[in-house]
């Protein structure tokens, strides 16, 4: 083996590996946040631009619980998920239920309105500064994997993504609720006439979606920092993930997150001066070729 190519090869391998790890962590955070959006959009056909706002609420509650109340990380996650769901229930009951089946424009306006309100209120209550959620000791340092070390919180984000994907797969494919959910996604009217209480299915899946958004907001706080404009800044990213993956498809959302995470992270490493140019170019290309998303159902 020639002497020069050894370290060079090693170095490029290291770059590929660190890009890969970052892309994987980013993609998994995107997945945890946007999978709920994908399921609700496939189920209720609501273009929900306020999904990021729920992730932001989760982040704020967790930050408040750890910083001001002094709770531990795990307790804060639990409090944030429950708190966000409690906030979201009346929103679903009084606002979202009015726009099921409405034209897209109406849905976009209503959910943008909700997002604006959340941003304004979050700023009023918590101030315009960036909020941090201090990680527990075990997630702070690097983890040595033998051939290289990786930041522990990234590994944790990846593990959370895998766990959420597995749990959702089990919930949807193996439980009776999953059967009802799939039936409602396929044909809500037929499911209702067969005795599935679609309203309850809608409400439960909305709550699960919001809870996952809050969870993702906390787990991803290191990568997508919590601040008042969070809801607006990442609103488009989450919507893009759902559109690329295909609304209602879990494998589709996973694929889209990994693909878009890889494109975005690679672009940032290799061509930072182009910003998100290639990300959006890829989005246009994918959506033009697959108008229903990569794994969307043809209907």
């Amino acid at each position: 083996m020639p002497d020069a190519s050894g370290p060079l090869l090693d170095q490029s391998m290291q770059t590929v590996l660190s890009v890969g790890i970052d892309a994987l962590a980013y993609g998994m955070v995107l997945f945890v946040i946007s999978i709920g959006l994908s399921v609700t959009m496939g189920l209720m056909r609501v273009v929900n631009l306020a999904h990021g706002a729920f992730a932001m609420i989760g982040g704020y509650i967790a930050s408040y619980a750890t910083q001001t109340l002094g709770f531990g990380y795990g307790v804060a996650i639990l409090a944030a998920v429950v708190g966000t769901i409690i906030i979201a229930i009346p929103v679903e009951r009084f606002l979202y239920r009015r726009i099921y089946g409405a034209p897209e424009l109406t849905q976009v306006l209503m959910t943008i309105g909700i997002t604006f309100c959340v941003i304004g209120i979050a700023n009023y209550v918590f101030g315009p500064t960036l909020k941090t959620i201090p990680l527990p000791e075990t997630l702070r340092g690097p983890v040595d994997l033998g051939f290289r070390s990786i930041a522990a919180h990234k590994l944790f984000a990846i593990a959370c993504g895998v766990a959420v994907a597995g749990a959702l797969w089990y919930l949807i494919e193996r439980t009776s609720f999953g059967v009802k959910l799939r039936a409602s996604v396929d044909n809500a009217a037929m499911a209702a006439s067969l005795g599935v209480r679609t309203r309850i299915v809608y409400a439960v899946s909305f709550a699960v979606a919001v809870g996952l958004a809050a969870f993702g907001g906390i787990v991803g706080a290191e990568l997508l920092p919590i601040e008042p404009y969070y809801a607006l800044r990442y609103m488009v990213t989450f919507l893009v993930v759902v559109s690329v993956g295909g609304a209602g498809s879990i494998p589709g959302a996973l694929l889209a997150c990994l693909l878009l995470g890889a494109i975005d992270t690679t672009g940032r490493y290799l061509l930072p001066e182009y910003g998100e140019f290639f990300f959006y170019l890829a989005v246009i290309a994918i959506v033009c070729v697959f108008p229903r998303g990569l794994l969307g159902r043809r209907s």
Binding site: L239, V240, V242, S243, F277, V283, V287, C288, P291, R292
Partner: peptide, 22 residues
């Protein structure tokens, strides 16, 4: 105009971001 519904919205968002970055 290649998309409809959600795809159309996402395409329009992607276009304005593309112009912005360019």
């Amino acid at each position: 105009l290649r998309g409809h519904g959600l795809a159309q919205l996402v395409l329009s968002i992607a276009v304005v971001h593309l112009f912005h970055e360019a």
